[in-house]
Structure formats: C-alpha cells, structure tokens
C-alpha cells in the first residue's frame, strides 16, 4: 500500500515540474510592439462649451426643482409633525382654551380640512394636584373642549375622538409649577 502511494507521489512531482518549465518557456516567446495612430485635429471647443452650458442649466433646473420638491415635502411633513407635536396647555383646574390654544387649534383644523384621509385623537391630561378621580373627568373635559373647537371650525365630528388619561401620564416629573404647567395639556395623535 505505502509503496504504491509513494510511487504515485513521485510521479505527480515529476509531472508538475515538467509543466512549470514548459510555461516559463512560453512566456519568453511573447513580444508586443505598441502602435500609435494619430487622429485628425478639428476645432470644436465652442460647441463643447455650448453643450456644457446647456447641461449645467439643465442640472441647475433639476436641482432647483428637487430642492423645491424637498422643501414642499418637508413643509408637508413639518405641518403633519406639528399636528402631533404642538400641544395646548391649560390653567389649573380649567378646561378653557386660551388665545394661543385657539390659534393652534385653528391651524390643526385647517390641516385636517386639507388632509381628509386623517382622523385626530385628542388626549386630555392633568397635573398631579387635586383628586385623581376628579382629574379623570377634567382630562375628558380638556380633550372635549379642543374637539368642540375643531369641529366648530368645520371638521366632521366623526373624524375626532377624545380620551382622558387624567393625571396618569405626566410628561414632566417634579412637584412644582414648571412641571405642572407642562402636564396640564391636550396631546394630539393622527390616525390614517
């Protein structure tokens, strides 16, 4: 067994050495001579400049259009984001809408009228003070006050839902006016 495989290995070694030699000989044979051909000279620099200018103008217009499109998209996105991010705030134990709140709600009503496929969920929240039970109703009252305003501005009632979280979901922690005034709020969620 061992002798047989030894002979095999020797044979393989011999054959591969032969192959190496032959390929080395072939490489030496190849010789390439480079040939250079000269093209006829034509003066077309004016045409080139014209085309370049044309292309530049095209590019500029496309970029401008893209920029405007992006700006428009961003504005739409921003308006949509503002629908959810812009909250309204209330005084202690009150569900009355301030002038600022009314302006914010008018904007939201306008947006909803332009974007008929969206519905709006309004969440009423309270600060931690006062009875937890009373605050559940106060939260509902705050949400309903906003819904009433938006509906009066011409948005169909069935596109508005109101919920209350009472004092259960504060955004600011701490037992001071700075935290309380952030927590007495309505939040808005878009639903498509």
């Amino acid at each position: 067994m061992i002798r047989k495989s030894m002979t095999g290995l020797l044979l393989m070694g011999f054959v591969s050495t032969l192959l190496l030699f032959s390929s080395a000989c072939q490489q030496k044979k190849v010789e390439v001579t480079p040939v250079v051909q000269e093209e006829p000279k034509v003066d077309d620099s004016a045409e080139k400049a014209r085309l370049a200018a044309q292309q530049a103008e095209k590019d500029r217009l496309a970029a401008e259009a893209a920029r405007l499109e992006a700006q428009k998209k961003a504005a739409i996105e921003a308006a949509k984001a503002a629908m959810e991010s812009e909250k309204i705030y209330f005084d202690y134990d009150k569900a009355d809408l301030s002038d600022d709140s009314q302006a914010t709600l008018s904007k939201k009503a306008g947006w909803l009228k332009e974007n008929g496929s969206y519905k709006l969920k309004i969440e009423g929240h309270c600060d931690e003070r006062g009875s937890t039970e009373y605050n559940m109703a106060l939260g509902a009252r705050r949400a309903e006050a906003a819904a009433k305003f938006i509906s009066a501005a011409g948005v169909a009632n069935d596109r508005l839902t109101t919920v209350s979280y009472g004092e259960e979901k504060p955004v600011a922690t701490g037992s001071n006016e700075a935290a309380w005034e952030q927590n007495r709020r309505d939040e808005f969620v878009l639903i498509q």
């Binding site: 919920v163 209350s164 259960e168």
Partner: peptide
C-alpha cells in the same frame, strides 16, 4: 394598562375598579 381605584364589595368577595386600556376609563 391603568388599573386603579379598587373599592371592596361590602361582603369582601370582590371589588370594583377603573380600568383604562385605550384612553377610556
């Protein structure tokens, strides 16, 4: 969710409470 305000029945067999799963108490 928000489960709160437990109130015993007078016989102690159970209690009422307020549950808010989706924004409604």
């Amino acid at each position: 969710a928000i489960a709160q305000f437990p109130r015993w029945t007078p016989d102690g067999s159970g209690f009422a409470f307020t549950l808010n799963r989706d924004g409604h108490f």
